[in-house]
């Protein structure tokens, strides 16, 4: 009789929690993610397939989590995040030229919330994150310490940091250290 092995997938930041008086740092729930590349003439059809308008302005998003969110990463590049549905399957219904790559298991995310969330991010991110240029709904690929991340501002005091799975412990530690000084 054949033996059956059961693999149990463990979240890379399983069980972690960090923060300080001003900020709470937690791992985000699992989500499906798609790296989408397409030319301007095909955006309309892809938006229809996804059920949201792909953002066309730099540093903007459309949609919201939980549910589906699309972040502008470049003039022909988006990151789609979905906590319930299957964006890849939906994109498959669009019969226009595009590249959609499932990066669900490449990425994970860290959530920051609280009055010190922005200051915590600023400990490792050189980008200007002030309200005037990084309002709620803004998203940007940038750097955090020595890794590349995508930062999404989901609320007044809430940020989502998308990073590669293998870098997530580094990102989590860096943000934890940043949290200590966030209200100083």
């Amino acid at each position: 009789m054949a033996n059956t092995a059961h693999a149990h997938r463990i979240h890379p930041l399983e069980g972690r929690i960090a923060g300080s008086a001003g900020v709470r740092i937690t791992p985000a729930a699992p989500a499906a993610r798609v790296s989408l590349r397409a030319g301007p003439s095909d955006v309309k059809a892809l938006s229809k397939a996804l059920g949201l308008d792909l953002p066309l302005a730099p540093k903007t998003t459309s949609g919201a989590l939980p549910g589906r969110l699309a972040a502008w990463l470049g003039p022909d590049e988006w990151l789609i995040i979905d906590e319930g549905g299957d964006p890849l399957a939906d994109l498959g219904k669009a019969k226009v030229l595009h590249s959609a790559v499932d990066v669900s298991h490449r990425n994970t995310a860290i959530l920051l919330s609280g009055a010190g969330a922005r200051a915590t991010l600023e400990a490792g991110c050189p980008q200007n994150l002030t309200d005037a240029v990084f309002p709620v709904g803004a998203a940007s690929r940038t750097v955090l310490g020595k890794i590349e991340v995508v930062i999404i501002r989901t609320g007044d005091e809430d940020y989502r940091v998308e990073c590669w799975r293998s870098f997530s412990t580094y990102a989590f530690e860096l943000l934890s250290v940043g949290a200590r000084d966030c209200l100083a």
Partner: peptide, 11 residues
């Protein structure tokens, strides 16, 4: 010129 703003050199 694509992001239409100034960004830190580290990027």
């Amino acid at each position: 010129p694509y992001c239409q703003e100034e960004r830190p050199e580290l990027e």
